[in-house]
């Protein structure tokens, strides 16, 4: 029982970080019907950036998010400008899957050349510390990572709920033609949405790099998990992605403890297949547009 509760706590903590990674994926899908399969690579890129800032300049990996997020936002807007926007007019949404996949491979390639394929970890002073709460041992970094994820996700949902830009995003998600007819600039919404999606991924990457060792190929495993999460939550639904991330984080962690760690990532794939077969719109997605 003790082990189980411990596993649930750890699952929730990592689930929060997964939620942050997946939020951008589901947001971008909602806005422009593009599945950005480079999302995992963006997380890993964020992990390397924060690793480098820490190991060469000594900037705390969690604080480095303040630098990494704006840079990655700009990168996202740039990628949208150069690749995604040009493609959308021409050949539509199918091609964008290939473009984002190519982006993922390009990032992996650049990282392999720059850092080799050796596993890295960002190890700040507090990486090994943990707290004992009611008899359960919790690593400090996991708590910090969870809290940071919650803060960023809350900021994101406030942005969407309260601001003019947020309204234009929700409108575009729910009815793109209608949004255009009311004067929403679809290109601007897509570009900024893509930038936000990628900068939140990179922010999560800074946390990921402290919790898990990583190398340039880690994005394959990651994108599979993220896709399971957004499909379970319902593509385009931010709240759904958060709930699904927590569920799968807990599922993974419980299976790792109760059965075997080598089975834990299997949870994601089983869930992915079951959902695709029995409830393709996900837990919270609706068949029509309009989840956000």
């Amino acid at each position: 029982m003790h082990l189980l509760v411990q596993a649930v706590i750890l699952g929730i903590l990592i689930g929060g970080v997964y939620a942050l990674m997946a939020s951008g994926l589901t947001l971008v899908f909602g806005i422009m019907r593009v599945i950005n399969v480079a999302q995992g690579a963006m997380v890993i890129l964020g992990a390397y950036l924060s690793y480098t800032l820490f190991s060469s300049v000594g900037i705390d990996p969690l604080l480095s998010i303040l630098l990494i997020a704006p840079v990655m936002f700009a990168l996202g807007v740039g990628i949208h400008r150069v690749f995604i926007r040009a493609l959308r007019a021409e050949s539509g949404e199918e091609m964008s899957l290939l473009v984002t996949w190519a982006t993922a491979l390009a990032i992996e390639g650049v990282l392999s050349v720059t850092y080799t394929t050796n596993l890295r970890s960002t190890i700040p002073g507090y990486a090994q510390r943990s707290w004992i709460i009611l008899g359960y041992r919790v690593a400090e970094v996991r708590v910090f990572g969870f809290v940071i994820s919650v803060v960023i996700l809350s900021a994101l949902s406030l942005l969407l709920a309260r601001t003019r830009f947020g309204r234009s995003v929700r409108a575009t998600v729910q009815n793109p033609t209608s949004a255009k007819l009311l004067g929403v600039d679809a290109d601007r919404v897509s570009a900024l949405g893509f930038g936000i999606g990628i900068s939140t991924a990179a922010a999560a990457g800074a946390v990921f790099g402290i919790i898990y060792p990583f190398n340039p190929g880690s994005h394959y495993d990651l994108i599979s998990r993220l896709l399971s999460i957004v499909v379970l939550g319902g593509l385009g639904s931010l709240g759904g992605a958060v709930v699904a991330a927590l569920l799968l984080g807990v599922g993974e962690s419980v299976v790792a403890v109760m059965i075997s760690p080598s089975w834990s990532s299997f949870v994601f794939f089983i869930v992915l297949i079951v959902i695709l077969v029995f409830r393709p719109q996900g837990l919270f997605g609706v068949r029509e547009r309009g989840a956000l």
Binding site: R167, R170, A171, Q174, T177, S178, A179, L181, G183, G290
Partner: peptide, 23 residues
């Protein structure tokens, strides 16, 4: 006002009308 349904289904009626003044 297009032929297809054009309200934002998950937004409130009020927010929909507000969107009419988006610009």
């Amino acid at each position: 006002v297009p032929q297809e349904r054009s309200l934002f289904p998950s937004m409130s009626v009020w927010d929909n009308v507000l969107m009419g003044g988006f610009v």
